[in-house]
């Protein structure tokens, strides 16, 4: 499902990411844990095809994304990868439902209202479909972001610090929700975080250390 070999990325000859071997199987969930500045966000961006590695290969669903053009990467990412960030980046002009549908449209999937409905239901957002994001609580807004990351049934969900801004209880809820939803939709989940509370919550853990 995800297979990384001899991945290197750096600026001005200084490596930021150097990972020899990394795999994730379908429906598995993994936490990549490391301190700030260890290059874990860069690693996530590389996996999403938002950055080009200096060397090495990244295979997602047996496609070598490092060989893809910019436009091909955009398409591939839209169709097969869902992303959740600490900051949610919901479109303020669109309603909750439109925000979720946007991911379907960008992935060139036909609009699937029942899929949106069931996600809203599952994430406790039923009845909020017509609301604008700024009317929602932080927790509700994050659940909208999770729904948006899953609505087009991606094979891989990448989450960057989804819990860092939340208190213990909410962090636990958010992580459980993310894991359960990804499982329910058949996606692998990779969470990148420095938040130690994530330890022990997901199937696998991968430690990253800053490169000297």
């Amino acid at each position: 499902m995800l297979d990384v070999q001899a991945l290197r990325f750096g600026y001005n000859g200084q490596d930021v990411v150097n990972i020899e071997n990394f795999q994730l199987r379908p429906r598995e969930s993994m936490a990549v844990i490391g301190p700030s500045g260890c290059g874990k966000t860069t690693f996530l961006h590389l996996l999403a095809g938002l950055l080009k590695p200096s060397s090495g290969t990244i295979r997602v669903l047996d496609n070598d994304i490092t060989a893809m053009s910019q436009a091909e990467l955009d398409r591939f990412r839209g169709q097969h990868i869902g992303m959740v960030f600490q900051r949610l980046f919901l479109m303020p002009a669109l309603t909750v439902r439109q925000n979720i549908e946007l991911a379907q449209q960008m992935a060139r999937r036909s609009r699937d209202a029942s899929r949106v409905d069931s996600l809203l239901e599952q994430l406790g957002l039923a009845g909020f479909g017509q609301q604008k994001p700024r009317k929602l609580s932080q927790g509700q807004a994050q659940r909208v972001a999770i729904a948006r990351a899953l609505v087009h049934a991606p094979a891989l969900v990448l989450a960057d610090e989804p819990t860092s801004a939340l208190d213990d209880e909410r962090a636990d809820d958010a992580l459980t929700l993310l894991k359960d939803s990804a499982e329910a939709s058949g996606a692998s989940l990779l969470v990148v975080t420095h938040d130690q509370r994530v330890r022990g919550k997901l199937d696998l853990e991968f430690e990253m250390e800053p490169l000297k």
Partner: peptide
């Protein structure tokens, strides 16, 4: 951020 998110969702440049 919004524009970057659109790219994450699959929009091209």
């Amino acid at each position: 951020g919004e524009l970057a998110m659109l790219r994450c969702l699959g929009a091209t440049r």
